[in-house]
């Protein structure tokens, strides 16, 4: 259980990768208003806002801004 470890180069890249993955997930869960699905659906995605509608209740309970 050696816990004091200087992160090696590869470690650092993996750590940054994990952070970016988390940030991306947070964007989808908490912020997206149609942008992600617009890649597949086109402009209509912004009106349908399906991801927002799906995780709607989770956004409200987690305290993320919603309506």
């Amino acid at each position: 259980m050696a816990h004091v470890q200087t992160p090696k180069e590869g470690h650092r890249a993996a750590l940054i990768g994990a952070f970016l993955l988390g940030a991306l997930g947070l964007y989808v869960l908490a912020l997206d208003q149609g942008f992600v699905l617009s890649v597949f659906q086109g402009d209509i995605a912004f009106d349908m806002n399906l991801l927002h509608e799906l995780v709607h209740d989770a956004r409200h309970t987690a305290g993320f801004p919603c309506h």
């Binding site: 997930g25 989808v28 869960l29 509608e53 799906l54 995780v55 709607h56 209740d57 989770a58 956004r59 309970t61 987690a62």
Partner: peptide
């Protein structure tokens, strides 16, 4: 979606 969202 609540459960999906909270698991996410």
């Amino acid at each position: 979606g609540l459960v999906v969202g909270l698991l996410l």
